[in-house]
């Protein structure tokens, strides 16, 4: 990998070196490094682009890194990655995509991730998006995430997109069985004339299932964001969705938290708040010696931390 690609790797997967455990590195449409372990097997799909990741039942404290980088202008790809996670696992999965586009043509990566989470398994999933390069070509990411959760399983998803991606359309769907638990933490910052849409459809299908979907976002300049999260309660379950946004400059945000209860014992809550940075917060930090711009940065960094 070249310097640009290595930089992207660092941004999206915090990787400074080859990670321990299983991994698959994809750069400009090709696999450039792969490691399977005794418990985690990564194979290329026989049809179409992408990989299958199979994690043996009982695999604990292991990790899989599958970062993707694009540094060639004009590259467009759709990749299917399927995760089959056995029963009683406890694993960390780090995905993420970095695009550097210095050229005139648009670069696009559409990753379709499907997770089949086995009974009583715990998964922590981290996905970061990052864009760089000052070409006219757009950096586009359209991730689709599907999560199918078996009884007693839990999944914590952290999705972060802070810089440089011109256009994103993210779609996440999840279906939960008995006592399954899904936690989503999304952090997003858009600037320039960027566009970001994030849609969630979480179905709580069996008793004891729960979901907590929280998005914190900042829209600067003339960027646009849409957050559309729907939690559907089909059993005795509990769901919470929250969208908390800071709006700046000429930014625009549409927040559509939605709930659908199809069972009398479904307890569902949603919250949404959009507002500019409170003047008092800026003043307080200025009395501590920061300039207005520095104060703004600190407030945003804290908010998105």
């Amino acid at each position: 990998m070249d310097a640009v690609q290595l930089q992207l790797m660092r941004e999206v997967a915090d990787l400074h070196d080859v990670p321990e455990g299983a991994y698959n590195f994809r750069a400009n449409g090709e696999s450039v490094g792969r490691n399977s372990t005794a418990n985690i097997d990564i194979t290329s799909k026989t049809e179409g682009s992408g990989i299958d990741i199979r994690i043996k039942p009982g695999t604990k404290n292991e990790s899989v890194h599958i970062p993707v980088v694009l540094s060639e202008s004009g590259l467009k790809e759709t990749v299917y990655n399927d995760f089959y996670i056995g029963e009683d696992c406890d694993v960390l999965i780090v995905a993420g995509c970095g695009i550097d586009n210095c050229g005139k043509q648009d670069s696009e990566h559409d990753g379709i991730h499907r997770f089949y989470v086995g009974k009583n398994s715990r998964v922590r999933y981290v996905e970061k998006h990052y864009g760089s390069g000052n070409g006219d070509g757009k950096r586009i990411l359209n991730p689709v995430t599907e999560v199918y959760m078996e009884e007693g399983s839990s999944m914590e998803m952290e999705m972060v997109q802070i810089k440089g991606v011109d256009s994103t359309e993210r779609a996440t769907i999840a279906e939960l069985k008995k006592d399954a638990k899904l936690v989503v933490r999304e952090r997003l910052m858009t600037h320039g004339s960027q566009n970001a849409v994030s849609t969630y459809k979480v179905s709580l299908n069996e008793d004891g299932s729960s979901a907590d979907v929280v998005s914190r976002s900042v829209a600067r300049d003339s960027s646009y964001q849409k957050f559309d999260a729907c939690i559907i309660g089909n059993a005795a379950c509990s769901g919470h969705t929250e969208c908390d946004s800071i709006i700046m400059d000429k930014g625009r945000i549409l927040a559509l938290p939605a709930l659908e209860a199809n069972n009398v014992d479904a307890a569902l809550v949603h919250e949404a708040a959009i507002g500019k940075i409170a003047g008092e917060q800026l003043i307080k930090l200025m009395t501590l010696g920061l300039t207005e711009a520095e104060a703004e940065e600190q407030i945003i960094n804290g908010f998105l931390k």
């Binding site: 917060q281 307080k284 501590l288 010696g289 960094n301 804290g302």
Partner: peptide, 19 residues
Amino acid sequence: QPVRFKGLTVLDLLRIAAG
């Protein structure tokens, strides 16, 4: 009436204060 900050920790604030 002190101001509240979502996301900034006490340590963050003390570090900003100390400069």
